[in-house]
Design a protein around this nucleic acid. Structure first.
Lengths: 247, 247
DNA sequence: CTTGCGCCTGACGTTACGTCAGGCTTTAGG
DNA sequence: CCTAAAGCCTGACGTAACGTCAGGCGCAAG
């Protein structure tokens, strides 16, 4: 008797699934999708059940899993699938956020270029804003997962830029006060300290987890990467402390 | 006389810019960033001007340009920068949209898995929705750029799924009508045809560019990829035409 | 002079295939 | 029956942007 189940050769099968023959070879070699049969001469023969598996693979690939991950996921027949999906969703969201930042950076760059000289000078500001975002990367390890997500949500380029401007403005004023030998207990000094606390408060958004992370971050100053410079001098810090700014 | 400009060795320079030494080697070999000097023994020496260039590179990389693109961009000193930025922005927005779809696909998958059996069966529906999106890919070439952007904006998974349900429901009814030998000029037939037109209208959103693309798409049926099946039979199509549905 | 750190240059690994190149099979036509 | 056109196969190399050894100098301190 003949096997009545229809089988497809490579090309047919591949186009049915929207992939290429070479992809099938690849998956075969990886052991990800073996054809259900070979002819005596080595031709691959696929059936409907293979198509189902291939579709699962394509789907998981679309979701962003690597072929290795897909292999193990399919092997354990979806036992840890839920956890894997959660992880994957977070990863994708991070990437999406990154791309969003990139888009906004480009838009800013386009604005600057359109109006002023199409010069690299214009890029410097944008570089700074972007580097701010990159700096966020290494600070992540200090924050709890929840805190770091909340921070990421709020960290749009315009917010970053405003914060940066506010800080540099305030720091400049404090530096001036330090130079002038201003008394840390004076009215003016306490006003500066209040603004300082205010900006910190603005950054944490009142969230205790973010505050905790920030404290950890500051405590570990010796391990900061070399390319990150504390934006204010030790004198400024001492002055603000004396004025009651930093708790 | 001595050269008073300070120069840095590889490690120092690399950490100052937040990259690795190996990256510097890489950029050197690519001719993307040559150190401003070598010692007699082959050590790389970098200066501040090199740092500026490196920062430009990092910035452009962040924006998603390849090292090759960066090289040419820096070479022509930003003449076509504006155009390049526009292109890049579009590319990134596409990627972002893709990721958004992936996230929503994952969320749907998570919902299904959480409630029902954690089975692959549940994935089938999601696969279909996702494949819908993938099918969008090859149809792009029929649409003008503007039309395809508009489509992409509206194409969230829920919209897609609703459209899919509406269509399969309507098609089922039309098939029944065809089977029953319903007269295409009857009241019921014209109602079906009206719903048909309505769904098309819903898809185009009344946009003439999208309509044009859709017509082109249908005219080129012979070139459709093999894995895409027209969701209705020729009889159904003939019936709807007879009932005055398709212009 | 040795120790230890920093620098160098290959060379191979990574991801998911694309693209030849060279050589069988199968099939349709003469 | 023979041949030419398709279709199939298996390597082998290429891609992007580095990471990671491995082996071998250079340099400053003790």
């Amino acid at each position: 008797m003949k096997n009545q189940e229809p089988s497809y050769q490579a090309q047919q099968f591949a186009t049915r699934a929207g992939v290429t023959v070479r992809t099938l070879h690849h998956y075969d070699r990886l052991g990800l999708l073996k054809p259900s049969a070979y002819t005596g001469t080595g031709y691959r023969l696929y059936r409907e059940s293979d198509l189902a598996r291939l579709q699962q693979i394509v789907t998981l690939k679309y979701i962003g899993f690597s072929l290795q991950e897909i292999k193990t996921l399919l092997a354990q027949n979806g036992r840890d699938l839920a956890a894997a999906l959660r992880r994957q969703r977070k990863i994708i969201n991070q990437k999406r956020h990154h791309l969003g930042m990139a888009v906004q950076a480009i838009e800013q760059a386009e604005l600057v270029i359109a109006s002023e000289v199409p010069d690299w000078e214009a890029f410097k500001k944008i570089i700074e804003v972007i580097n701010m975002q990159n700096d966020m990367e290494w600070t992540r390890k200090y924050y709890s997962e929840a805190a770091s997500e909340k921070l990421a949500e709020r960290a749009t380029p315009d917010v970053i830029e405003k914060g940066q401007n506010d800080w540099s403005q305030l720091i400049k004023e404090v530096e001036a006060a330090v130079r002038d030998g201003e008394d840390p207990t004076s009215e003016k000094s306490r006003s500066l300290a209040a603004r300082w606390s205010n900006l910190i408060q603005q950054f944490t958004g009142g969230d205790p987890e973010i505050s905790a992370g920030l404290r950890k971050l500051y405590a570990d100053q010796s391990n900061w990467p070399a390319h990150f410079q504390k934006p204010y001098s030790d004198e400024v810090e001492a002055f603000i402390c004396a004025a009651g700014g930093k708790k």
